[in-house]
Design a binder for these strands. Structure first.
Length: 375
DNA sequence: AACCCGGGGGG
DNA sequence: CCCCCAGGGTT
């Protein structure tokens, strides 16, 4: 089978050379080496996130944190602020911590060895393999969801993508491909080609086999099984939540904001004072009279009804937001949030825009709110 | 092994 | 609009 693997590797490398998308973390025209720091940042951003979306944010992140040393020196809240809207915010904290760990290394350089890379916070087996191979051409696999799917189809292996044997199988096959003559000196290019093929051609649904360079080698295609490989997983269960957010404006036009607890959803990010509670048919949620007490906002008078509602969906929850408004009374003295460790501050909208803030809170705090207070 | 952690795109 | 995607850390 060595010749089949050689054909696959050669075909992948030629295809990638001709068809690779132009992405901001790749060297232009595939000439020159990849910058290790750029690779670190982009691989963190690419965890669970599509390349097109990362491409919108990567240049801005680099402009703000131009080098690993800059990132290591930065304040965590500023890194989180720059990450706002990208989701999975633990990635931002881990990236910052990883930059600090590398900066503390003897030469302050990223290791070439995947095992040493795995020791960094937020760097698992995939990310370590990606950085090692893409930035330093270390001959090691980088198996993400794309690569697993491509290999399962290529070998007509009827396994679920997240199944226990899948990663080991894909890892083994990727290692064999990397050992072929055409790929031996091009580990980074081969890994990136596999990822690129999965992202652009061998997509989860409706794979574009007519455009696939590996169509002739693909065993799933031969069996017309590409649509059912990999096997589907059961859907995730969504938890229904309510979030009552109170917009409080003082005489200077500033809004009251608080920081969320350091763990859990939207950890350590800023928001309007918000109470989360279960949502459901027999869960009416707090009333306008109850909310000020529950949120430690003594003396506040809310309007009788929310001024706006909307639904925010994440993978595992459906959050029904209700926005309330109030003008701060003259002697208003808000305490810390109910969780105890939630400091509160008054800020203008243009200052809030610079903070670490989730998408729903961005919608709540940064929209034009004058009309809401007029009601 | 099961669960937590966001957000956007595709059919 | 519903359905889908998927890496790392924690427990």
């Amino acid at each position: 089978m060595a010749s089949r693997d050689s054909r696959i590797a050669r075909t992948l490398l030629e295809w990638f050379d001709a068809a690779a998308r132009d992405l901001p973390w790749r060297p232009p025209g595939r000439a020159g080496r990849r910058d290790p720091y750029h690779t670190l940042v982009s691989e963190f951003m690419l965890q669970q996130t599509q390349a097109a979306r990362v491409a919108e944010r990567f240049p801005r992140f680099l402009a703000r944190f131009p080098s690993l040393a800059h990132l290591a020196r930065a304040d965590e809240q500023d890194v989180l602020a720059e990450w706002s809207g990208l989701g999975y915010y633990a990635r931002a904290r881990n990236l910052h911590a990883a930059a600090r760990a590398v900066a503390d290394l003897p030469h302050a350089r990223l290791p070439h060895d995947p095992d040493q890379l795995t020791a960094l916070p937020g760097v698992g087996r995939y990310t370590a393999g990606a950085i090692a191979s893409l930035a330093f051409n270390t001959p090691t696999p980088a198996v993400d969801g794309n690569v697993s799917r491509v290999i399962l189809r290529l070998e007509a292996k009827d396994l679920p993508l997240a199944g226990p044997g899948t990663l080991a199988f894909a890892h083994g096959r990727a290692t064999q491909l990397l050992a072929t003559e055409p790929a031996r000196a091009s580990a980074g290019a081969l890994n990136e080609a596999l990822i690129e093929l999965g992202a652009t051609i061998c997509t989860p649904r409706s794979p574009r086999c007519e455009a696939c360079p590996l169509a002739r080698e693909c065993r799933a295609r031969k069996l017309k099984a590409q649509a059912r490989i990999p096997r589907a997983k059961p859907p995730a269960r969504q938890k229904h939540l309510r979030a009552d957010s109170v917009l409080i404006r003082d005489r200077a036009g500033r809004l009251l904001i608080e920081r969320r607890p350091r763990t859990g959803l939207w950890a350590a990010m800023w928001q309007a004072p918000t109470l989360e509670s279960p949502a459901g048919p027999d869960e009416p949620g707090p009333t306008a009279r109850q909310l000020p007490r529950l949120l430690h906002l003594p003396g506040l008078n809310l309007g009788p009804r929310p001024v706006e509602t909307f639904t925010h969906a994440t993978t595992h929850r459906l959050v029904q937001f209700r926005i309330w408004t109030a003008a701060a009374p003259r002697d208003f003295a808000p305490g810390p949030g109910p969780a105890g460790d939630q400091p509160r501050e008054w800020k203008k909208q243009d200052q809030i825009a610079m903070l670490a803030i989730s998408n729903p809170q961005r919608r709540i705090l940064l929209a034009d709110r004058d009309s809401l207070f007029d009601r």
